[in-house]
């Protein structure tokens, strides 16, 4: 389906982002972002602000570049040799791609949850304690215990696993594993959490739990979520950005995007013409 739309006139059609991509005092601001894999361009001139303590959903057909864009925030693309990022990323006032910016420090501040739950083959406790131990966030065992317990509580997993913290993290169910990964991320106390389709590998009940969790986490964290499901975007986010073929087509309040999309492409997507 996407093949059909990939015609020059479509690129013409997405000349400028509809809606306002900018916010007052953004947590993260991005300007004129281009991303290349070797010679192939994946993201075209995207500018977008992420507001403090909001959940913003990035939606769009598969292959539209939303995951690529998301992975630029915590420089996960550094690990891919062929990937090149230009443009401006700022976390509050700091340049994310500045020479002096240490990706290790950056990732301690911007956490990430992946599409497929990826707990380490360690115990539940060690999974959550991994980050705090790395960064030296706990000065003794008691503090570490406290961080682990509170992280598990915040991730809504504690009640289910409190009796078997030493059991392997890989032995949990898919939904539990994903919440464990969220707990693991929270344990480092990041300011922003990136979520790359966090519920796409889960069943509906587990998905609902994760969605509730995201809503609670909004109190303390800024959350950027990539999702394939429009319903999920509508349920969890305050703002929504629609990507198409590497371009940011439209951004606005979630309500407005889903009830009254301004751009023809957004409307086509929302109404299910392509996906």
């Amino acid at each position: 389906m996407t093949q059909v739309i990939e015609a020059p006139d479509i690129h013409q059609a997405i000349k400028q982002t509809v809606g306002s991509p900018f916010t007052h005092k953004p947590k993260i601001s991005t300007r004129n972002v281009d991303v290349f894999y070797d010679d192939k361009q994946a993201i075209f001139d995207v500018s977008l602000d992420i507001g403090s303590h909001e959940v913003i959903a990035l939606i769009g057909p598969s292959g539209c570049g939303k995951s690529t864009y998301l992975r630029c925030f915590n420089r996960m693309n550094d690990t891919i040799q062929s990937c090149r990022v230009t443009g401006e990323f700022r976390l509050e006032e700091e340049d994310i791609y500045a020479r002096g910016m240490d990706p290790v420090l950056l990732r301690a501040r911007i956490g990430m949850v992946f599409q497929k739950p990826n707990p380490f083959p360690k115990s539940i406790y060690d999974n959550v304690a991994y980050g705090p131990k790395l960064h030296g966030l706990a000065s003794n065992r008691a503090e570490l215990d406290e961080i682990v317990v509170s992280s598990l509580q915040k991730a809504g997993l504690y009640e289910e696993v409190k009796d078997r913290l030493n059991a392997s993290g890989t032995g949990l169910s898919g939904g539990q594993q994903q919440r464990l990964c969220i707990a693991r991320t929270i344990a480092v106390s990041p300011e922003v959490i990136l979520m790359d389709e966090p519920a796409s590998a889960l069943d509906p009940i587990a998905t609902a739990t994760i969605e509730e969790l995201i809503d609670e986490l909004r109190q303390n964290y800024t959350i950027v979520i990539v999702t394939h499901s429009m319903q999920q975007a509508a349920r969890v986010s305050q703002r929504t950005a629609y990507f198409h073929l590497g371009k940011l087509v439209e951004v606005g309040d979630t309500n407005q995007i889903f009830t009254n999309p301004q751009h023809q492409l957004t409307e086509n997507y929302i109404t299910g013409r392509f996906g």
């Binding site: 301690a108 501040r109 030296g136 966030l137």
Partner: peptide, 22 residues
């Protein structure tokens, strides 16, 4: 309170960075 919690974390991480990079 939350903000300062973040701040102190960043400081702690920054503190350990040199050693870790070594």
């Amino acid at each position: 309170n939350k903000m300062s919690h973040h701040r102190s974390n960043i400081e702690q991480v920054r503190h350990s960075l040199k050693k870790r990079h070594r």
